[in-house]
Write a protein that binds this DNA or RNA. Structure first.
Lengths: 337, 337
DNA sequence: GGCGCGTTTGACAACGTTGTCATCACCTCT
DNA sequence: AGAGGTGATGACAACGTTGTCAAACGCGCC
């Protein structure tokens, strides 16, 4: 900027004015400055600008894994809104590791992002309190924060969705419905379990722990649990799977593309009914009935909340609960064998 | 930092030394400083640090769309390597719009990112030349840049993959193979078309333009083209689809979940054979034979190239071509009807 | 002619760091 | 005792901007 000023024969401040389109610069002067900028290939240093002005025009987004379609949909929505607000986005994947979540968040804070959107991996967010007090806005998405500062939160109606899915299976005559999901320490999994139990209770059915399998969402665990479930003396006639990854893993296990030995269902029974929480790309091709949520909608809602805070809106923290939608495609409408 | 210095009764510079773990600070002094940092909740301002030191320890990643599984896989790999290098990542989706690509890249440059990884949407990258001359490292991924600075590039063996896929169909007796892909203006699509043509030529078969349908990867276009192809007097007995999105759209069209009227194949023929370029999440469940590439591997390769440049490696721009892999799952092995 | 006013411009400090160099106390060696 | 070395600390400028304030200028008006 100094060089530009020298080249144009004006003061530093005048260049600054031109660069920022501030009024009160003579047209011919501005012309000279523009010429100098052009010829020197000058580009404003936004880092210095940020230092001086206090706002960085950037936000941090911490999700579980960008490579998961659910979170990448959410990411894209956040990005779009941020760009429209003239804001850039730092993205980081925590991989469900609280330490990495913390590391990322604090690194973003050290960069003085204006705000954060966080899908919490850990349950302790006390480390955020000083940052929030220092003026960094935070919005939690998909899961509420654990201990820590009160902040806006966007979740989906996990329990309601699970209830609807379970009720749908019940309505089709199923009485033995297995529930396969993430570890119960994860908020969404716990909530979905709650919805499942509520639906059973409302229908007057007992809650059988033997039909519930929660844990890591990887193929091996799902395969083992599914094998156990289908070998029960009184096996389930329907499965409710607790997220997209687990649904796919389950389908793989059933199709026999998962491991050395395919999971065999009792020979007497027909194909098991299945409903999955979360829609996934070609669920329609596979004819899988799902409880769909809207990742992009969640990203939009979180980003909108954040930017509302950034533009000065105060008031108590909000908690938004987005609805889910039952999408009927066949797999959830098979009758019990 | 000033406040911390005052609270600890030391000079600014001593605090700086403590914060940066520089040697030559008395243990007891350091202790006092740490206590002051703790009690004031001080966190270093990386923006100022950056301004002083010249390196921002951040990179920019411009892809076509984070929500596309191919690019989100690539993203995640880039993120992981960057984090290991102590670097944060700005992510932006261009949505195949050259203007938005430019806008994002220039915004990243104004933030003085150390380097860029770009999946080019446009064909003109002259706008990058001054930035590269100013010292910002750039690596292109998935597609080479158009006009613009010479820079490292990572692509996959598009032509080779398409050749292998086409040859596989030929080996199974197909003589009428349709090719559905992205618009030919997109590098990968053009290369894959080249591979397809080479395979035909090697087999001594004529190239029939009527069997080629290129354009936007959306459902409506694919549906229309597929309908046209299957109504030909001499219809294709096999399809080669040019990327993940188009493969899924094609499967939808064939399954009839795509639009009002399902695409009907000639009643006399069996189901058409199909091979897709790009693996996609449940392709195994659907039994779709694919030419797989490795998005994470591409991200890793691009990030490694970038960080090698950032650590000072010079030399002419490199061009890496990653191999593809034929994954046999059934859909590509059906004989012609 | 002198005054006030608006427009254009510039000098300077400040943002929060870090690199350079100087200072100072203390110790060891001759 | 004095020279020289070592370790700890601090003063100050600089990074590239922008906000504040003041100066300089031209103009119309009393």
């Amino acid at each position: 900027m100094n060089d530009v000023a020298a080249a144009a024969g004006v003061a530093l401040k005048t260049v600054s004015r031109v660069v920022n389109n501030e009024p009160g610069v003579n047209a011919s002067t501005a012309e000279r400055v523009h010429a100098a900028i052009e010829s020197l290939g000058y580009r404003r240093n936004d880092g210095a600008r940020t230092l001086r002005r206090g706002r960085t025009a950037s936000i941090g987004l911490v999700i579980e894994d960008v490579a998961d379609p659910f979170y990448s949909g959410l990411s894209r929505a956040v990005e779009d809104i941020a760009l429209a607000e003239g804001c850039l986005v730092f993205t980081g994947s925590s991989g469900e590791d609280p330490a990495r979540e913390r590391e990322l968040v604090l690194a973003f804070c050290a960069r003085r992002v204006d705000g954060l959107i966080i899908v919490p991996a850990g349950t302790d967010h006390d480390y955020l309190t000083p940052e929030v007090e220092a003026g960094i806005a935070a919005v939690f998405a998909d899961r509420p924060p654990g201990a820590g500062p009160d902040a806006d939160t966007v979740v989906c109606d996990n329990a309601g969705g699970a209830r609807a899915g379970t009720e749908h299976l019940l309505a089709h005559g199923h009485r033995r419905i297995a529930f396969l999901a993430d570890a119960p320490s994860i908020f969404t999994a716990a909530e979905r379990l709650r919805g499942y139990r509520e639906a059973l209770a409302t229908a007057g059915l007992p809650y059988d722990e033997g039909l519930v399998a929660m844990g890591r969402p990887d193929q091996a665990r799902v395969l083992a649990d599914l094998r156990r479930l289908l070998r029960l003396a009184d096996p389930p006639t329907a499965l409710f799977t607790g997220n997209g990854q687990i649904t796919v893993a389950t389908l793989r296990a059933l199709a026999g593309t998962a491991g050395p030995a395919p999971v065999r269902q009792a020979p007497s029974s027909g194909p098991v009914a299945i409903i999955g929480f979360d829609d996934f790309e070609p669920a329609d091709l596979l004819g899988i009935t799902v409880i769909a949520q809207d990742p992009a909608g969640m990203g939009r809602a979180a980003a909108e909340l954040l930017f509302r805070r950034l533009s000065g809106e105060s008031g108590p923290p909000q908690r938004l609960e987005l609805p889910t939608r039952l999408v009927v495609r066949g797999s959830g409408e098979r009758p019990p064998a």
